[in-house]
Design a protein around this nucleic acid. Structure first.
Lengths: 109, 109
DNA sequence: TTATTATATAAGCAAATACTTATCGATAGC
DNA sequence: GCTATCGATAAGTATTTGCTTATATAATAA
């Protein structure tokens, strides 16, 4: 891995909101609309974060109908390091379940 | 480690020039004036990078006369991860030895 | 077809970042 | 004391970043 790739990689991970996104993706694949609820951000903001994560090859996207399902790229050479770094972070307070309790569950299919 | 600390940590490491600085520090403790030659940067630029690295507790400084000797903080809880990340990067082309060959060795004492 | 939904993209903006030059403080040597 | 050197800090600047709102694209539903 050269210095530019490493910089891309560390900058992709090194953002509060993207760490949250990656934390959520450790548990399950999710679509953009679910992230907008989980992070309380606009849809374009989430899309742009996913673009950054994808540029660093940290995530994969799968188009399913209208939805784009995002998941961690487990084949990334540094995937084990990513898991380790994420394991150092606390679980996000908001979850899909807690959103469901508020009646905000996004069904996505 | 909370999200803010992790962000500070990853942003400190996630810069091309700071990765070079850390790479050099893996081999030996160095002073600011040596880095200015190794990275071909101005002295204030190096000082500012060291300040960022220190804020993330990645490096330690020791005042010795006029010089400040910088070294890796081997006591940092995530020091092993840092070493692993740095090990993925190629050795810098310029070295203290190659500078010596150009007659640019900074003696520092 | 037309409307709705999920996402991507474009353009604009404020804040952060990585430099620069200029200057200040502290130490060492004369 | 005076001067030179190492380093920190301040101020200025161009670029990057992370958002915003507005709009475009594509798939589903009516």
């Amino acid at each position: 891995m050269d210095y530019s790739q490493m910089e891309l990689y560390l900058k992709a991970v090194g953002d509060h909101n993207r760490m949250l996104i990656l934390k959520y993706l450790m548990k399950e694949a999710l679509c953009i609309c679910e992230f907008t609820e989980l992070l309380d951000m606009t849809q374009p903001a989430i899309s742009q974060h996913m673009r950054k994560l994808k540029a660093a090859e940290l995530v994969m996207e799968e188009k399913r109908g209208r939805w784009t399902i995002w998941s961690l790229n487990t084949r990334h050479p540094q995937y084990p390091i990513l898991l380790h770094l994420l394991s150092l972070l606390p679980e996000p307070e908001r979850t899909i379940e807690s959103l469901a309790a508020e009646g905000k569950r996004v069904i996505c299919e």
